[in-house]
Amino acid sequence: MDGIELSPKIEREAAKLLAQISRADSMILAAKAGARAEGFVLGLEAVGALNDSTIDKLYVIFDSATEDRLRALAPT
């Protein structure tokens, strides 16, 4: 999460969510982990915990990680 200023607690949770996405061993688990991460960011946005720019960056990070994992798991 380079270039994003997060509190240590939010950063730990975000890192856990990214790890869940990256180690998902099926497309369903990857999609669920991605949805969980999106919900996390939505919650942060709803309570005004971070500025809009940081929220947008988090959405992009989690979306990209989910898409990458889904591509990696897709049958060839």
Rank of each mutant, 00 (worst) to 15 (best):
A15G: 05
S26W: 02
D68Q: 14
V60W: 14
F62S: 02
D56W: 08
I21L: 07
A46R: 15
A24F: 02
G48D: 09
L70P: 09
L50D: 06
L18W: 00
R71T: 08
K9F: 01
L50E: 04
R23E: 14
G34T: 04
D2A: 06
A31E: 12
L44I: 04
A72E: 13
L29W: 07
P75L: 13
L58M: 09
S53P: 08
M1D: 01
D68N: 15
G34Q: 03
A72Y: 06
R23K: 13
A46G: 15
G48H: 11
L17H: 00
E11C: 07
G3S: 08
A35Q: 09
E11H: 12
I28S: 12
Q20T: 01
G43F: 05
D68C: 10
G34H: 04
L58E: 12
S22P: 01
Q20F: 00
A24V: 04
S64P: 11
S22K: 03
A37L: 10
E5A: 00
E67H: 12
R71E: 15
F40W: 02
L42V: 05
A14M: 02
G48V: 10
E5P: 00
F62P: 00
K32C: 08
A33D: 04
A35S: 13
L6P: 07
L70E: 12
L42S: 11
I21Y: 03
A14P: 13
S26I: 04
R12K: 14
T76Q: 10
V60N: 15
A31M: 11
L44R: 04
G34C: 07
A35P: 06
A49E: 11
A74F: 12
R12F: 10
L70K: 14
I55D: 12
Q20P: 00
D25T: 09
R36P: 00
I55Y: 14
K16Y: 05
D68G: 08
A24I: 02
T54K: 11
E67C: 09
M27R: 08
G39F: 08
G43I: 03
A35Y: 07
S22C: 01
L50N: 04
K9T: 11
M27W: 00
K32S: 10
N51S: 09
S7A: 05
P75N: 11
A19T: 03
L58T: 03
L73G: 09
R71C: 10
V47D: 11
Y59A: 05
M27D: 01
E13Y: 00
L6T: 01
Q20N: 04
A19V: 01
F62N: 04
I61D: 15
P8W: 01
A30K: 03
I4H: 03
Y59W: 09
A46Q: 15
L58P: 03
I55A: 13
R23G: 02
A30Y: 00
K16P: 02
D52N: 14
E13W: 00
A24G: 07
P75W: 13
I28K: 12
I61A: 15
P8Q: 04
R12H: 13
Y59T: 01
